[in-house]
Simulated scan of single mutants.
Amino acid sequence: MIQATEMHQALGAFDKTTSRWGRITMIIGLIFSLSAPAYLVFFAGLDIEIAGIFAAFGALAAVFGVIWIVEPLTYFPILGASSMYQAFMIGNISNKLLPAAMIAQATIGVKPGTRKGELSSVAAICGAATVHLISLFIFVGLLGTWLVSVIPADIIQTVQLYILPTVMGAVVVQAIVSQKAPRAAIIALAVSIIVVLIAKLYTPFGLFSTAVAVIATATLAWFLRDKKTLGTPEDTTNEELPEGPVY
């Protein structure tokens, strides 16, 4: 019990540190990202009206606003609190960081939503970002122009067309195998098919298809879950204190 208490205290310190510095770094990143547009608006003499800025923001919010809500709700159960700061600072979450986190969790045999799952996500995202930066430096910074000149254009188009479905397909299979929740997987597949069919018949629905699919899948999976199972994470023991953020 003493060891579990010490672990609980260490995780509490970890949560406080990541929450504090996560907020600070996100605010700094926001300031840097807005500094160049702010300079163009107020100091570059481009005669940009504030009303035009709000109109453009409203147009973008109408299209992508739902993603601002859906993405954090979708990623948090898998990544955890500390990894969310990393993910939204780095970017490329769905096609790079999320697959890395899920593969890491499956490899070491932990479940999303647990403290071990969160810590494995942190390590996986650090590794993915490091590999990304090194590969960008080598294959884009040093060899980018040469590679583009020697690779046939049709191959480049084929890679651009199929690379994302390939990555996402592998991640979906990995998630189904590692989670061992066939009922939830079937529900997600059925909901996705219905949403895609509706989006094809009614084009404006496509703007909200992701939100509808996520919310409908989560709701149905909850109500249709196997109520006989306790849902206790496999990587906890009786001596450990409850999982979750500690403040």
Rank of each mutant, 00 (worst) to 15 (best):
G127D: 05
S83Y: 05
F64C: 10
V140P: 01
G45N: 04
P99H: 05
A87E: 03
W146R: 15
A106I: 04
S82V: 06
A129Y: 06
I69Y: 08
M102E: 04
I69D: 08
F88V: 10
A62E: 12
A153T: 14
I53M: 14
Q105W: 05
P152R: 02
F54H: 10
L98A: 04
S83D: 01
A128R: 05
E118V: 00
T107V: 12
A59H: 11
G80D: 03
I156Q: 12
S121V: 00
Y85A: 10
V110Y: 03
I93R: 03
L73K: 09
W146F: 14
L98R: 03
I156E: 06
I108T: 06
K111M: 14
V122F: 09
V140T: 11
F42S: 13
A129L: 12
W68R: 07
F76I: 11
M89T: 15
V70I: 13
W68D: 08
V70A: 14
G127M: 00
T107K: 09
G45H: 08
G91E: 04
I138S: 06
S120A: 15
I134F: 03
L147R: 03
G109M: 01
V66F: 09
D47N: 15
I156Y: 10
N92P: 08
A106L: 00
S120H: 08
A123W: 02
T145Y: 09
F137Y: 09
V41T: 07
S82Q: 07
I155A: 11
A55Y: 05
G80C: 07
L143E: 07
G109E: 03
G144F: 01
S120F: 09
G117P: 04
L136D: 12
L136P: 02
H132C: 12
G109S: 05
I78Q: 08
E49D: 13
A51H: 10
M84K: 02
G58Y: 01
I138P: 03
E118F: 06
M89F: 11
F76A: 13
G65Y: 03
L142T: 11
M84A: 00
A106Q: 02
I103D: 05
A61T: 12
A44D: 11
M89L: 15
G80L: 06
I108L: 10
G45D: 04
